[in-house]
Design a protein around this nucleic acid. Structure first.
Lengths: 220, 220
DNA sequence: CAGCATCCGCTTTGATACTG
DNA sequence: CAGTATCAAAGCGGATGCTG
């Protein structure tokens, strides 16, 4: 039982510095990302969702974030009977920080994926935040994304775009391929022909893609 | 000459993770803060503006940020004859990240200042970003802030608030005091009486303060 | 198996001293 | 002024062990 309560601080009376005192340490914002995108998680869900983190670090970070009022830990009711971690209201407010960080970082996604890990729910950031349905009055569309084993569905809702895990019921388009070809296509960085040359396959009409364009504040 | 080009990466194909690969290391965002608030800086300006940073770390970080295309280094023309650092366009885009981070962190400014360092230009963040002039049609106002030796001026412009170093010509109000009393007053967390009890002194009419209120997206 | 704690080698950081 | 050099301490990542 060693609990060294972290205290390293920038010691600057500045809002940015004080924010970084709390969430600036390695892995902290990515833990928040996972909880934001996936909702309440068990310890092992987080471990899987954060490839590369050491298990002791995750435990430490969760304690620190809990103490900072960002993460709440609670025992799940009998059916599950496990410890669950979720964001507090204060933690949810970090969403705006992550949005801006993701927007700024989207440009970096053009770099080849190399050996980077990929989880399809991470796509929710670029998709939900930067895409808009250009013709919201027409019937909604659904696009099914099949990336390395798992399937994600992208649906238009109220002029925006929503993502969820799993297959679509009656998709207008099915895209199968690697993460960067699909992301390149969705962000408009690649056209259909180029994306196909890079490993994308499709089934259905790609014209629905024209309805989804980067909105007023495009990333990069 | 030891140059170990940092490569530690989260190795995750996610926009947030890739952004943090570049600007997530300790001190990086604070260096950007300084360059954003003060414009082009010399090495020693940055060293002074970042109390607590080790000089070798600053040198390392500037190299990394330069290589990442965030900071530009150039030799100033003859009159100055020194190396200057400034943000590139890509670096300026981090402003939105810092704004959200600062907004989130403002709540933490309620904690006592303790031994934290303070530079008055750091006030520009809360003041410019969160305050609005409620009656922009009336003649502009100027408030002079005197905090621990140096003086900052706060002026209303187009319904917003602008800050600059130095004294005001004909201030409507002069506030003298410690950082947290002044910040508490400006953010509306403290009223005039309470702020006075905590060390604030004023000269002029405090009613102008009512014109400056937190805008539609208040911090915290 | 879920949820950690411990140990260990390596890297990063921080404080200080020194140099052109 | 603008850094480099040195070194101790802390943090991180990986492996493994322990407990319900």
């Amino acid at each position: 039982m060693s609990y060294g309560l972290r205290v390293r601080s920038y010691a600057q009376y500045c809002a940015v510095a004080r924010a970084l005192d709390v969430i600036g340490d390695r892995w902290n914002l990515l833990i928040v990302r996972e909880l934001l995108l996936r909702g309440a998680c068990r310890y092992t869900d987080l471990l899987n969702g954060l490839p590369g983190i050491a298990t002791n670090l995750l435990a430490d970070r969760l304690r620190e974030l809990e103490q900072a009022g960002i993460v709440a830990r609670y025992e799940a009711p009998p059916p599950i009977a496990a410890a669950l971690f979720s964001l507090t209201a204060r933690g949810e407010q970090l969403k705006d920080v992550l949005i801006e960080l993701g927007r700024w970082g989207t440009e970096l996604m053009a770099e080849p994926i190399g050996d980077d890990a990929f989880h399809s729910h991470w796509l929710a950031f670029p998709a939900e935040l930067y895409l808009e349905d250009q013709t919201p009055d027409r019937p909604p569309i659904a696009i099914e994304l099949r990336i390395g084993g798992d399937t994600t569905t992208l649906e238009t809702v109220d002029g925006g775009v929503h993502t969820r895990a799993g297959a679509a019921e009656d998709p207008d388009l099915i895209l199968t391929g690697n993460p960067q070809a699909i992301l390149g296509l969705l962000t408009g960085r690649l056209d259909v022909a180029t994306a196909q040359a890079r490993g994308l396959e499709h089934q259905g009409s790609t014209t629905v893609l024209r309805r989804l364009q980067p909105g007023k504040r495009p990333p990069g």
